[in-house]
Write a protein that binds this DNA or RNA. Structure first.
Length: 504
RNA sequence: GGGAUCGUGGGGUAGCUUGGUAACCUUCGGGCCUUGGGUGCCCGUCCCCUCGGUUCAAAUCCGAGCGAUCCCA
């Protein structure tokens, strides 16, 4: 493939840099996922029509096809939240500085990346307003007001919104943007048990989202103490492994203990009329999940989506000759209508002036999970040809019962995607028993490396410094015996098992 | 935070060294053609990232800014 858009192209022989003689390359993906994942990712996002870069650095415009994926993620999660006692609400975009300051740890945690509003019209504000980097500090005071007695608990609020974190880092659409979409849930409970159960419920729902909707195997764990959310007692995490060997924090939930209850005076009278401080939690999932999704399944043909998230699950492509156009298109339209009635999201691509090959390529680029090809042969035999997006597997099936057949094939596509990702993950969790072995293993293979860890942040430092890998998680269960007796770095007694990985 | 590479119609590129009418492929719009893996033809719309400097003259040379991608911390 000509490296026409690589800077290094100019160093190649002249014949290697002559421009393309056919238009094939520019229409689809020209970068290799394996060899230049960064550029490949940017190209997939743009050419699949998910997002464009905004005129301000660090911001993106989410296009309809991208937003449709986000809406499906939202709908799945939101339904589960509501089934488990959560109510949606909405709090202001701006937070007064005095509010933000109420929880010292949170202020310090976000201080360098808060965007401030200092003027209203032409007048300077008396008190500047933070653009929310997260909403604890405006939600908690209201939860305090609304919490009088144990009968008000548990209180579970969630909001879908965007937040802004003014990091100076470079943009990677959905992975790293200054403004991003997410949901943040905030709950208050009478006691630790209730709050802890809440923390786990949400973590499990996130794991379920990854498995059942996104076709990605999640790892559930806990962040090491030095990487907890500011002020949290425990921060849990869902980690997912990208094909380039880096881990993504794909969702998180926090048990906050009573620290927020104390800072914001979230108290209640219990059954004995005693005043108590509530235990709180918070939990969130952002559109970074979409970034992880794109990275995990997509390929050099373009976007690959699991059926549960695909805006179009099936595309029907009619293939006709001059003398049979009407029969073929009628047959295809009828089949599409039947799928539509059965609740399948189906598109009939009966555009003229575009030959079938063009359509195949375009729908592959856009990530449509299943293609149905209808030509004279299918019409004559009362059949349909189904092609799976992830691997091109082709099967000719009976026209009768097409809705059930298609549904089965969509399930198969999901299962294939999951199985592929799971296989990758399983091979990428390794063990190490020394500093050198950690460095060597991650350096050579990427992925996760499990090792014994004494619990001291200082022991993470040499790994971070040498290869920018860090402890992305430790086991959820605090009582779990460490994998090795000794800390792989300092040799002291190991307290738990650390999972080292490079991360996004 | 440090370094590297880059910025020309919607996408991909040529032109820059040696300053002088911006060219090609594709997309897009209109017309013709009509299909088992990016079909062919005709017509049309749309460009030199921004600001400053040098110059009779800047896509080209110089400076700054903005933006993107990659590598390192």
């Amino acid at each position: 493939m000509p490296a026409t858009n690589h800077p290094s192209g100019s160093l190649l022989a002249p014949w290697a840099t002559t421009h393309l003689m056919s238009g094939e390359q520019e229409l689809g993906i020209t970068e290799s996922k394996e060899h230049s994942p960064g550029e490949w990712y940017a190209e997939v996002v743009q050419k699949a029509g998910l997002a464009d870069y905004a005129p301000m650095g660090g911001f993106i415009v989410t296009r309809p096809r991208g937003y449709a994926i986000w809406e499906r993620i939202q709908n799945n999660l939101d339904g589960w939240f509501k089934d488990t006692g959560v109510q949606n609400a909405y709090f202001p975009l701006f937070i007064p500085e005095s509010y933000l300051e109420k929880e010292k740890d949170v202020v310090e945690g976000f201080d360098p990346e808060v965007a401030w509003v200092t003027h209203g019209g032409h007048d300077e504000l008396e008190e500047r307003l933070a653009v929310r980097p997260t909403s604890e500090s405006i939600i908690a005071p209201f939860m305090a007001q609304w919490t009088r007695s144990h009968r008000d608990l548990p209180m579970r609020l969630n909001q879908w919104c965007s937040v802004v974190r003014w990091e100076a880092t470079e943009t990677k659409p959905f992975f790293r943007t200054k403004e991003f979409l997410w949901q943040e849930g905030h709950t208050a409970h009478a006691d630790e048990d209730g709050a802890w159960e809440e923390t786990m419920t949400r973590l499990d729902q996130y794991a379920r989202l990854y498995e059942e909707v996104m076709a990605m195997p999640p790892l559930k764990g806990r962040k090491p103490p030095h990487d907890k959310f500011p002020g949290a007692h425990t921060t849990t995490t869902i980690e997912t492994l990208m094909p380039d060997g880096k881990s993504v924090q794909a969702a998180t939930s926090h048990y906050l203990g009573t620290s927020f209850g104390e800072a914001f005076d979230i108290t209640y009278a219990d059954a004995d009329e005693e005043e108590n401080t509530a235990h709180t939690t918070s939990w969130g999932l952002s559109w970074r999940a979409m970034g992880a999704l794109i990275m995990t399944h997509s390929d050099d043909q373009g976007l690959v989506l699991p059926p549960a998230l695909a805006p179009d699950q099936v595309v029907v492509v009619p293939i006709w000759q001059e003398d049979n156009q009407e029969e073929v298109v009628d047959y295809a339209a009828d089949l599409a209508a039947e799928l539509d009635e059965a609740g399948v999201r189906v598109e009939l691509d009966d555009r003229e002036h575009r030959n079938p090959g063009f359509k195949y390529n375009e729908h592959e680029l856009h990530g449509v999970p299943l293609r149905v090809e209808i030509g004279p042969h299918e019409v004559e035999d009362g059949e349909a040809t189904l092609v799976h997006r992830p691997d091109g597997d082709t099967e000719t099936v009976d026209r009768d019962g097409i809705a059930d057949t298609v549904t089965e094939h969509l399930d198969t596509v999901h299962a294939k995607l999951y199985a592929d990702a799971e296989e990758t993950l399983e091979g990428e969790i390794r063990e190490a028993e020394s500093r050198e072995e950690i460095l060597g293993t991650i350096g050579q293979h990427g992925g996760y490396v499990k090792c014994g860890w004494c619990g001291d942040e200082d022991c993470e430092e040499p790994i971070k410094e040498a290869i920018a890998a860090e402890i992305v998680m430790v086991p959820l269960n605090r009582d779990e015996e460490p994998i090795h007796d000794d800390c792989a770095i300092c040799g002291e007694e190991a307290e738990e098992t650390a999972y080292f990985a490079k991360s996004y």
